[in-house]
């Protein structure tokens, strides 16, 4: 492999039902920074059917220099083979130095297959990406052992250097309509056998399937929420943070939330990136289920609540007034 012929950064622009996924814009933000450091272009690969110019415009406004589009009926719904074929052929033709894919349930199916087809390495679920000083190595950092260990991986002699990137970690750029970019179409010769896997049924269920162990953000409430109405406020907050509601045993016993949301010794062990404990005192049985969380914020009106000993950030205040204020603050900031 002549690695010197590989240039630029390529982002797989994941769309589902015509909606470009949030992680795509995050990858463009991260990819833009790397491309600028290399002084090379940022490509976005958009696969699908009946795509519009607006899709490409959105990708350019968020940082892409060139959008490479394959629009074909075989790409209408995600299937491993046609998507792999298209992505691998584009990689072989464009020869990017770096290839980034969102670590979604789609990206984690596509990226290993496509990277194997173009005979390169792949690093899973990265949470940090940067160029090594003085080389063209991408430093890909990822958690292992359930987050106990961080490892920085390189792929020195193969190209592209490919990574899947955990959603919600990278920063997207503010939309810039003035940004200029090029849109090109790419032809892929598909065959009937590419569709050997048949889709019988597709069912969209809003978040009901996810369990709290998989959420990257948990807004968790305890007895200190006081009543079911107050507890419901946590759901809005969780939604605005892209997370789920969890609870202490007290809140479950009070009947405010089903048992499958319970964190702790008699509930589930969770390790989200953010655990926001609202009105939870922090008994050892609860802490055992969440102490490995990436970042713990505790809100409680009692300054001596044990939860504060485990929190990275503690706020002593009336939680039921803080929750709506926080939702409002987040809404304001997201508009910036």
């Amino acid at each position: 492999m002549d690695i010197s012929s590989y240039h630029g950064v390529m982002v797989f622009a994941e769309q589902r039902n015509g909606h470009i996924q949030k992680v795509t814009f995050e990858l463009l933000g991260a990819g833009r920074a790397i491309a600028d450091k290399l002084a090379e272009p940022l490509f976005a690969v958009l696969l699908g059917h009946q795509l519009t110019t607006q899709h490409s415009a959105d990708l350019i406004a968020h940082g892409a220099d060139q959008v490479i589009v394959v629009d074909h009926p075989y790409l209408a719904d995600y299937r491993t083979e046609p998507y792999t074929k298209a992505l691998a052929q584009i990689i072989d033709q464009v020869k990017p130095c770096i290839g980034l894919v969102g670590a979604t349930t789609l990206g984690r199916d596509l990226a290993p297959r496509a990277s194997a087809r173009v005979k390169t390495g792949l690093t899973a679920d990265c949470t940090a990406l940067e160029m090594e000083d003085g080389s063209r190595n991408l430093l890909m950092t990822r958690p292992a052992f359930g987050g106990n260990i961080m490892a920085t991986i390189i792929c020195p002699e193969h190209r592209p250097q490919m990574a899947t990137v955990r959603p919600g970690v990278m920063r997207k750029l503010a939309r810039d309509e003035a940004r200029q970019g090029e849109v090109t179409t790419f032809d892929v010769a598909f065959h009937e056998e590419d569709l050997s896997v048949e889709i019988l049924e597709t069912v969209i269920e809003q978040a009901t399937l996810k369990n709290i162990e998989e959420a990257s953000v948990l807004v968790s409430g305890g007895r200190g929420m006081g009543n079911a109405e107050n507890f419901d406020q946590l759901r809005k907050l969780a939604t605005s943070l892209g997370g789920m509601v969890a609870a202490s045993r007290g809140a479950v016993e009070a009947g405010w939330v089903p048992q499958d949301r319970q964190v702790g010794q008699t509930g589930k062990t969770v390790r989200p990136d953010l655990y926001l404990a609202c009105g939870i005192s922090g008994m050892i049985q609860h802490v055992a289920g969440m102490e490995e969380s990436g970042y713990i914020v505790a809100v409680n009106k009692k300054a001596d609540a044990p939860i504060f000993e485990h929190a990275d950030l503690g706020i002593v205040t009336d939680v039921n007034r803080l929750v709506p204020a926080l939702a409002e603050e987040l809404r304001k900031r997201s508009g910036e």
């Binding site: 809100v299 300054a303 503690g314 706020i315 205040t317 009336d318 926080l326």
Partner: peptide
Amino acid sequence: AGKVYEVEPQEGARIIV
């Protein structure tokens, strides 16, 4: 050990963000 702030709810929300 993390930082703990004893503040009004509004200020607490701002600190968290």
